[in-house]
């Protein structure tokens, strides 16, 4: 049986389909999870997902599935553990098309092996953890590498926007972090995999892909100044930097443009420190300090 999904990180969508399949006793090998493409028309409006794509909640909290209090406990016969929900909620955000199949197979096996997820050496469990790890890393990097640019405010609150390109469908999962952190300003984070916005009362989420834009912020210059000067050329370790700040994120980081030059120049700067060694004469205020000290001790 074919199951068509929008597949943009919406857990509810998969959960409903998976529950239906399980209730009907469909074995995993008979379920064909198909990712719909071209759901949006060329003008950037949501064509087929309608209002449901934009979730809102009046108290500002992120609506289900991330809020566990609101999770309705299944009344059907499906058996799941909280660990299963926690992990699959994250895994479903992965961009690999095989995630749906894997999660359903785990759900299926969980019905007869209640402790399945406790065994980290099981191949399916291992694969699930692999997906989760990759998504969590991407979420973590989004928290780190989103760069807000100030824009025209529409109210007394200051307004900021950011363009970011995540690897997975993580905007809805990561937005609450920005809500907790930047409560007193308006902000929008736009990405090709959905967007989030905060205006003080509500968190707006959209699955619609956004288009890139460019904005200048004067503070970026100060930030680059800081970045260039906090770097210690005597400790150059390029691979350590790149493993934590992979190049795929560089194009949206204002400081990244400086990196090649900082690396190229490092050796020369260190040599210069060696060649110059210490100056012959200490500055005037040092000499003044010294004479004050000797006065005192006499």
């Amino acid at each position: 049986m074919k199951v068509r999904l929008n597949a943009r990180g919406n857990y509810e969508e998969w959960r409903k389909a998976a529950r239906a399949a399980l209730t009907n006793g469909l074995e995993p090998k008979f379920v064909d999870w198909v990712v719909e493409t071209e759901t949006y028309d060329l003008f950037g409006e949501a064509a087929s997902i309608g209002d449901s794509a934009v979730c809102e909640s009046s108290d500002g909290s992120y609506p289900t599935p991330a809020n566990p209090k609101r999770r309705t406990v299944s009344n059907s016969a499906a058996f799941v553990t909280s660990a299963f929900i926690e992990l699959t909620e994250i895994a479903i955000c992965h961009s690999d098309a095989r995630r749906f199949d894997l999660c359903y197979r785990l759900l299926w096996r969980l019905q007869s092996q209640k402790h399945l997820l406790d065994d980290p050496a099981d191949p399916d469990v291992r694969a699930l953890h692999g997906f989760v790890k990759s998504v969590r890393r991407d979420m973590h990097k989004m928290k780190a590498f989103v760069r807000f640019k100030e824009t025209q405010a529409v109210s007394e609150r200051r307004a900021f926007v950011a363009w970011f390109e995540p690897e997975h469908f993580i905007v809805a999962q990561t937005a609450p972090f920005f809500q907790r952190r930047f409560g007193d300003m308006d902000w929008i984070i736009a990405t090709p995999k959905g967007s989030a916005a905060w205006k003080g009362a509500r968190l707006y989420l959209s699955e619609v892909p956004a288009k890139p834009f460019e904005l200048k912020d004067e503070a970026d210059d100060l930030w680059r100044t800081y970045y260039a000067n906090i770097f210690n050329p005597a400790r150059l370790k390029v691979s350590a930097m790149q493993s934590e700040m992979p190049k795929k994120y560089w194009k949206n980081l204002p400081e990244a443009a400086l990196i090649p030059e900082l690396i190229r120049d490092a050796d020369r700067r260190v040599r210069q420190m060696h060649e110059r060694a210490s100056s012959a004469e200490a500055p005037a205020f040092h000499r003044a300090l010294k004479s004050r000290m000797t006065d005192r001790s006499q």
Binding site: A144, F177, R181, E244
Partner: peptide, 30 residues
Amino acid sequence: DSRSGGLGSTESSGICHAYAPDGRCISLLK
């Protein structure tokens, strides 16, 4: 966090917002 006002939050694990070419993380304005 800033849900009750103000600016800013702390998470259980720190966040490294950038890395300098010396491989050190930049998390704070030092």
